Simulated assay, not measured.
Amino acid sequence: ADTCIYIDEETFIGPGVCIEGPGNIKIGKRCMIAAHSGIYANSHNFANSLEPIKHQGVTRKGIVIEDDCWIGHGVTVLDGVTIGQGSVIGAGTVVNKNVPPLSVAVGVPARVIKSRISQSLWEEGVGISGT
């Protein structure tokens, strides 16, 4: 099957960004991806210590970066991850698991440190889905 890298409108990709998409990558609208980040939609199998890693094959789960995300400088996004709409990923972060919408995530590995949902909207019952 053919693989696809899809980048939607008004998305900025900084210099030196590597987008490697054998497992498919979808990047939404109005995202900002800072310089020297890497988005890798594949991973090597390495379970068998008697066989060269190079010969053990790869997985290709794919990556989704939803609309309006800001990916900081030098972030690495690993295979199988979805970064939810409106999320901010701090510089140098390694994203190895899903990030919920409207989150701020930092660190190696990534950990969500706060939500971007404003307290006033939260009190009015306007959740992430906007209902």
Rank of each mutant, 00 (worst) to 15 (best):
R116Q: 11
I39Q: 07
V75D: 13
E66G: 05
A105K: 00
W122F: 13
G92H: 02
E51T: 00
D2A: 04
G86S: 08
G92A: 09
N48T: 01
T11L: 04
S120N: 09
G62H: 09
V108I: 13
K26N: 14
S49P: 13
S87K: 02
N24H: 08
V126A: 05
P101I: 01
L121A: 10
I5N: 06
P109E: 05
D68W: 01
P101D: 01
D67S: 00
P101E: 01
D2W: 06
N24F: 08
A35L: 07
R60M: 15
G127K: 03
S129P: 01
K114C: 15
S43I: 13
I71T: 01
T93V: 13
W122A: 11
R30C: 11
G21L: 10
G57D: 11
G90V: 01
G16P: 06
H44N: 12
V99I: 15
K61C: 15
G130F: 06
A105E: 05
N96G: 08
N24C: 14
I128A: 03
S118I: 10
G38R: 07
D68R: 00
T93R: 08
W70F: 10
P109G: 07
L121M: 12
S115N: 03
I33M: 12
N98A: 11
G57S: 05
I128C: 02
I83W: 11
I83M: 10
D68P: 00
G80Y: 07
E51N: 00
V104I: 12
V64Q: 10
L78G: 07
T3W: 14
N24Y: 07
E66Y: 03
I83A: 07
D67E: 02
V106Q: 07
C4P: 07
R111P: 13
V94I: 14
G107K: 03
I53V: 12
G80P: 00
K114D: 13
S37F: 12
Y6E: 15
G130N: 05
E10R: 00
E124N: 05
R60T: 15
K54D: 15
I65Y: 04
I53T: 08
F46T: 03
Q119N: 11
V108K: 08
G127S: 07
A105M: 01
V104K: 02
I113C: 12
G28D: 05
G72L: 04
C4R: 03
P22E: 03
I89R: 05
I19E: 11
D79V: 09
V75P: 05
N48D: 15
I71Q: 09
N96C: 13
A35F: 07
P100M: 14
S87M: 10
G107D: 06
V95T: 01
D8L: 09
A47N: 00
L78Y: 12
H44G: 08
G57Q: 06
G90N: 00
T131E: 15
L78V: 10
Q85I: 09
G16N: 08
G80A: 10
A105R: 00
V75R: 03
W70G: 04
H55T: 14
D8Q: 02
N96P: 00
H55G: 11
R111Q: 15
R30H: 13
G62L: 12
M32L: 13
E124D: 13
S37R: 06
S87I: 08
G21Y: 04
S43K: 01
I5D: 11
C18F: 03
E10H: 02
T82P: 02
G57W: 06
N48E: 13
V88D: 08
W122E: 14
E123K: 00
F12M: 09
S49N: 08
E66M: 07
